[in-house]
Structure formats: C-alpha cells, structure tokens
Design a protein around this nucleic acid. Structure first.
Lengths: 125, 125
DNA sequence: CAACCATGTAAGGTTATCTAACATGGTTGG
DNA sequence: CCAACCATGTTAGATAACCTTACATGGTTG
C-alpha cells in the first residue's frame, strides 16, 4: 500500500508537457528523434511522458538557450549515462564543462524540491 | 524557482485516471455528476484531473466497495468540507462513522507517503 | 414488484495527437 | 559570400481519445 508517484510513470499527455515545458510539440518530437527522451506510447500510438521526461526536456531547453547545439547536448547526456566513456573522440571543452556544471546545479535543486519550476506552475491556476 | 507538483494541478487525462483508479469512464463521470470531483476542462472540453481528484476517486471507490451509497458518500464529503454542518437533518450512524474513520486512516496513510497505491502503480511498468 | 441506483453500452460528433513532407530563418565552414 | 545544415514552423490527412446523450440492465429495497 505504498503510494509514491514514480518519476518514470508515463502519466502526461503531449499538451500537458507542452505547457509544463513551454516547448512546441515539434520541438518535443524533434528531441525525441534525437533520443534525448523516449516517451511511452499508448496502444493508439499517443506519446505518454513521465516527470523524468519533463525534467530532461527542461534541461535540454536550458542548454539550447545557452547556445549549445544538439550534438553537444547528446554528448552530455551520453556522458551522464556512461561517465567512463573513454571510447569516443574529443572531449568537452572547459567552457562547456562549466556550462554543464551550472546546469547540473539547477537540475539538482529541481530534483531536491519536487518537479516543476514555479514559473511554469502558474499557468495552471 | 521552486518546483513542487501541486496536488491540485490538472495534469491527468481520463485514460490515465482510469488506469490509476481502475474505474470506468462512466463511473468517473457519474461521480463528477454527483459533484464528488470537479475536474478542469481544456479549451476543447476534455476533462483534466489532479492528483487530489485521483485520491478522492480512490476514496469514493473504497466507500462504494464497502456498500455505501452515493447519498451517504456525498454527506461524508460535505461534512469534511464543513464539519460544523449543524444545518442538515439526521446525522451519520455509528457504524457509518466507524467506516469513515477506517477510511480516513487509509487516506491519511496515502497522503503521508505520496500519491497512489502500489497495486495501482504496477500497471505502468 | 415497482422504482431506484449504479453502471454498461451504443451512436454520433469533436478534439488532440500522429506521421510525413515541405518551408524557412539563422549559423557556419570553405 | 554562399551552400549546406540545423532547429523549428506549418500544413495536410488520418485516427485515437474524448465528449454528451440516450437507452438498457441487473441488483437492491421500501
């Protein structure tokens, strides 16, 4: 009889995620194309997102707004998944690493509290 | 920059709530008809439920399974909202009160942890 | 046993989402 | 400087998911 809402549960429809992240459907689908998220699908093929997906999207959005491109963002997420990725070619530059650390801090704060930035919540009242 | 997910945020579509509660759409709409919940509506008139709505629905479901009827359930929720309802007619019987207390305990436990019973979550893995 | 209660189900209509394709403005490397 | 690419917009056509309304139904119950 526990009742945790798992951050991996696919609870959210496209329109809600658009509101939570302030991204367009096109953007969200594009990021999925690049495997930054992999939302579940209903039987009828509709995307269903988890809170983790929303967090990832917010992180991607921040990176893009800081001028990063998809390629670098993908590297960052790859490195997160497998920190010992000695396999790949050139590493991330110093300034890039600084950007990432900065974003990591924000992300950590997000995680600590609960799930969505206040600015985004105001849309629901 | 807080990030709480409010229990009152209308995040969830009908199909997800059906899965979370194991109620049919008909049942959920019927309970809404009786004002036990009042989900938000999108511009296009789709219902959007909050986590609080889900909790209420689970509570209603428990009461019904215990053999209560809508009338009594409505009274319970009315009394919850306004405990000093000296206005209305006859009170709830002793056995009813015992049922309610029992359910209150469960509900309290639910609230304490997080949001959905484990049995319900398993459907999402 | 007539009436009601909670739910199922069907019909017909609308909205939200899907994929695929093409359009476009902003970089950027040669 | 411009050709190519990148991230995103937009459109079209299809369909899944949701809506309301209405009628059907089995289980209580006065």
């Amino acid at each position: 009889m526990s009742r945790e809402i798992r951050r991996t549960m696919p609870l959210l429809s496209m329109s809600i995620v658009m509101q939570l992240t302030e991204l367009s459907a096109r953007q969200i689908r594009y990021y999925e194309e690049h495997h930054l998220i992999e939302p579940h699908r209903t039987e009828g093929n509709r995307r269903m997102f988890s809170l983790n997906d929303v967090d990832t999207l917010l992180e991607v959005k921040d990176y893009l707004e800081q001028g990063m491109n998809m390629a670098k963002i993908k590297k960052i997420f790859a490195k997160k998944k497998n920190p010992v990725a000695t396999t790949d070619e050139q590493d991330l530059s110093d300034s890039e690493l600084r950007q990432i650390m900065r974003e990591e801090m924000r992300q950590a704060q997000r995680m600590q509290k609960s799930s969505i930035r206040r600015g985004d919540l105001s849309r629901f009242y």
